[in-house]
Nucleic acid binder design. Structure first.
Lengths: 238, 238
DNA sequence: CTAGATATATCCATATTGATTATAAGAGGC
DNA sequence: GCCTCTTATAATCAATATGGATATATCTAG
């Protein structure tokens, strides 16, 4: 069934007010690149395109509660830390009917990302390649194919990447993408993946330590064939 | 009619999906303080409390179009420059029914603010006194009385002030609050009003000029009984 | 022409940043 | 046990940005 055929059987005037959904941008740094969890649509409209996990907001459900529920039901993620991103409400963003969606951004460590992939087999990890020039990006499958995105989800993902870059050096978003204990090099790699540019190592160390956000744990990374680095943990500012 | 009495005649289950509204935070710097345009509610619920201008989003209306329409119809502001602020959707934020509201932020020069006050007589200019400590604020009438705010509109206004502070030194929000041509001292006063702290004058001048955002016009301010200052205009970065 | 007020420019001490170089600490080969 | 390799961590220096103070310029009012 094509999009056109589907729409012929759909009554867009069935309701007189917009529906409200939440859509989730669930991100981790995977192999040095920001990556999002996407679902392949198997029914029209936009069949075979890739979409963000989402769902309708219940009449007695807070927006954030709906987002947490979608994270659990569609991505197998329990107790996700979600932040409201932006609300998308263009009239024709969904061909079926008027839907306003509140996008949420969830950040997780690579291990949680892999766990979600294992728990919900329909999920695909899409690497988001940031254009060197600046604004745009491309979503690619693990095999390197460009992924066509459904509806306005490319715009939502782009907004998420911009938000991430903007908050990087004054908020704790960097730590949300790392395990509880991490080395300074891992932290720097996360920053570099988000910014898309290499950073100066000593200056980065100094800035991070001076901010007072991280505390050494006294333990060191294991399994390296060279000098192991100190493990730090995130410590909200006093 | 009290709120309780009103609610007894209201059926909160009349509809099965949330309604969507836009609420507008219309700000200017007035007499050295951030000030917002508010409307006094004359009917329950929350009668006699002060509310942000707002309205329902039409089924065939983009979110931003609805915000522009509300700015025109309820505040007499034509062609407002509005930026989406945040979406508030707590289940009980409105006692009548489930309403999700998308808040928009509009900045204007003091002259446009005064013009709006003259055009829509129901509007009240509320000065927003930022608590010295940090987060909170108080809304005061021109006579200095504390204004009780309706629904969650205090939270919305607080979010607007935080957004304004956050964007101040890397975006053009400062210029949106000034007339087309302005002196460096006016620009500094706007920044000080938003931050709530005095700023170093030579350092402020240097930073603003170095950013390349402003260009001298060659004309000078008039009517001063002392040396007139150069008038600058905003020039988006090349 | 002078006084008063404010704009604008200059100067210096200090903090921050980019970049390079030096030292420390572990693993593994011999 | 010692050497080498690799990376972590520290130290150093120059360049830049910032806070604060002072000096100079330019207007109005009288």
């Amino acid at each position: 069934m094509s999009d056109d055929e589907f729409l012929r059987h759909y009554d867009p005037q069935a309701f007189d007010r917009p529906s409200i959904t939440v859509d989730l941008v669930l991100l981790a740094i995977r192999g040095g690149r920001p990556s999002a969890l996407l679902l392949r649509r198997d029914a029209p409209p936009q069949a075979e395109r890739w979409a963000l996990p989402g769902g309708f907001v219940g009449i007695d459900e807070d927006l954030e509660a709906a987002a947490v529920r979608v994270a659990r039901d569609k991505a197998g993620i329990e107790g996700a830390q979600l932040e409201q991103l932006y609300t998308f409400g263009a009239v024709n963003r969904d061909p079926r009917m008027r839907i306003v969606t509140v996008a949420y951004l969830g950040l997780m460590a690579e291990s949680a990302f892999e766990a979600a992939l294992g728990a919900a087999l329909q999920l695909l990890p899409a690497a988001l390649e940031i254009d060197p020039g600046g604004e745009g990006f491309a979503a690619r499958s693990p095999e390197g194919e460009a992924l066509p995105l459904a509806f306005d989800h490319a715009e939502i993902l782009g907004t998420a990447l911009m938000r991430l870059r903007g908050k990087l050096d004054w908020s704790n978003v960097g730590f949300s993408l790392l395990p509880e204990r991490f080395t300074l090099r891992q932290l720097q790699e996360v920053h570099e993946a988000i910014l898309g540019t290499p950073l100066n190592k000593p200056a980065f160390r100094r800035r991070m330590l001076d901010k007072g956000w991280i505390a050494p744990t006294g333990t060191r990374e294991a399994g390296a064939s060279f000098r192991p680095a100190e493990l730090y943990r995130f410590q909200p500012n006093t």
